[in-house]
Design a protein around this nucleic acid. Structure first.
Lengths: 305, 305
DNA sequence: CATTAACATGAATAATATTCAAGTTTAACA
DNA sequence: TGTTAAACTTGAATATTATTCATGTTAATG
């Protein structure tokens, strides 16, 4: 065995996720595979790289040194890969993005920032899919990429999963439902549900939580901006299902509280939809990679798809 | 497939050796393996890395860029590996070296220079084995490493091959034998052979060239220093068998000329002899690695062992 | 127009990474 | 103190990937 870029990449993910088990998920490997990988490294260099017994796990001096190398090497490799991708053709093109996901700005903005650095020649545009259905526009070629949590089978369109997130029911701090460890559908029969202004068929809380149980909320009202929704919730005008990552800051500041929907929680997956033709276009591929990487760096509580 | 350190290492060797075939030898791989490896890289990045049809082969812009990465990454990886090896223990120790090879200073000095940088704590010493037989001293533990081209089976001693070289018969420029494309043993029956002052049983030209043919040179004289030997040859006091790498400068300056010994040439291997116990000692291993690397960088015309 | 050296290719094999199916260990909790 | 769950380890089975082997192609050379 030899030290390879793969190992360095692994090491970074382990540090970022704080445990072998979680790192394995992100790397799309079993936890056993990672254990073997690290063990082989440790045997080759005849030293331990980190102490597993503490959470988050701690790197030894040797592990820290190797991580330092990783920090130098991995970005350099990625930079070269991007440059070659540009060289290989398709260095310029158009990337018009539409988002159906109303809370996506948080990771989309840093993603676009860092993407622009790598692909200055790509003409970018961003439209929010509030008023029109973006998928036909994607098929027609008016736009090139749609961020959505609701993949619909359409010929010529593929969905690349970005990450999984949990929808939490956001509640005022002293809301009665906060006494439950998790929310069941009947709990909502007497509540006003605040949502983004989209058709209920696009909302997971209806499709995968309330409708299967045959429950209707007492009322519904909509708001476009996440901040407004939160204000409404805080002032007890209703409750709202929001992605966990949107809430981390507000929960920490104790502005609102939140509970899982169902014992297992209500999980959704965010996808990038693109035309099959664009599947291997370098600058499109790299956008997706940049997006997942940025998300995992920026967002707390999300899971690999 | 992914870009790995291995590929970057390969790329450097290809550049240094100017052809896939030679690079393969140095990497201890078949030429086919290398061809596959490069092909896979080129397919992954969808570009060619170098033009094969020219000798030495030329890197494309993409290849150059990747080589640039290699130049940054490989030394960084090696540096970390050495640091970890020191951390893992055995960071300090003794390395007393004896050389039997009289022309080895050329690569030994740069080797020791760069080695000292990496292992400042290791106490080094160098003795030339002119007067005593170093192998018993190695067994006893008086010295720790012997550079020799003449491995003798001794319990507790192993030989790590460094590189292969060709012994050439060095001749005055206008020497009659220079008219032959290569030298046969009978040609030497009328010549004075100039050698280093060691027993003839240690000299490859006797053991593997003259004795098998039952030929004796007309005379023999010795000199300790390579430069003196060359002066004697140039002034027609005799002929001498010397490693090819010693001669490159003098041949270029047209000071002397040289011919292969036999149609296939007379090839020898240089070894590092060490005690079996020291086989895995980090600072000893690294000396051997540094030595081969330095040799291939410094010396022209040598071959992987 | 042979001949040689360098490189390419497809199939076979060897080496290596990963998973699978246990088994430990640790920490949390009743 | 026992019980459970989560995180990690381990050895054997399997899958994947790298390398070799045998052979073909190409380009340069006499």
């Amino acid at each position: 065995m030899y030290l390879e870029v793969r190992h360095l990449y692994t090491l970074r993910v382990i540090r970022d996720s704080g445990s072998l088990a979680r790192a394995a998920e992100r790397l799309h490997l079993t936890q056993s595979a990672l254990s073997h990988q690290i063990k082989a490294l440790e045997e080759q260099f005849n030293c331990t790289l980190f102490a597993r017994k503490s959470r988050p796990l701690r790197f030894t001096p040797a592990g820290t040194r190797m991580l330092e190398l990783a920090e130098q090497v991995v970005p350099a490799v990625q930079a070269m890969e991007r440059e070659l991708a540009r060289l290989a053709g398709g260095e310029t093109g158009r990337l018009h993005i539409a988002i159906e996901c109303h809370s996506c700005f948080e990771w989309l903005m840093p993603t676009i920032d860092s993407y622009r650095d790598h692909w200055p020649e790509v003409e970018m545009d961003l439209s929010t899919g509030f008023s029109f259905d973006p998928l036909p526009a994607l098929v027609r070629g008016d736009i090139d990429l749609v961020i959505t949590s609701d993949p619909q089978e359409i010929a010529g369109i593929i969905y690349e999963p970005l990450f999984r997130y949990e929808a939490l029911l956001t509640l005022a701090k002293d809301h009665p439902l906060a006494s439950h460890a998790w929310i069941e559908p009947p709990h909502l029969a007497t509540e006003t549900l605040i949502t983004y202004p989209v058709d209920r068929s696009r909302l997971d809380i209806f499709r995968h939580f309330l409708e299967p149980a045959g429950i209707e909320p007492a009322g519904r009202r909509t708001a476009e901006l996440t901040l407004i929704i939160l204000q409404l919730v805080a002032s007890k005008r209703g409750v709202a299902a929001l992605p966990n990552w949107v809430l981390t800051d507000y929960l920490e500041q104790d502005y609102v509280t939140a509970r899982p929907l169902g014992k297992q929680g209500l999980w959704g997956t965010l996808y990038a939809a693109l035309r099959t033709d664009d599947r291997n276009t370098p600058y499109v591929r790299d956008f997706i990679e940049t997006a997942t990487e940025t998300s995992f760096r920026t967002l707390a509580g999300i899971q690999p798809a």
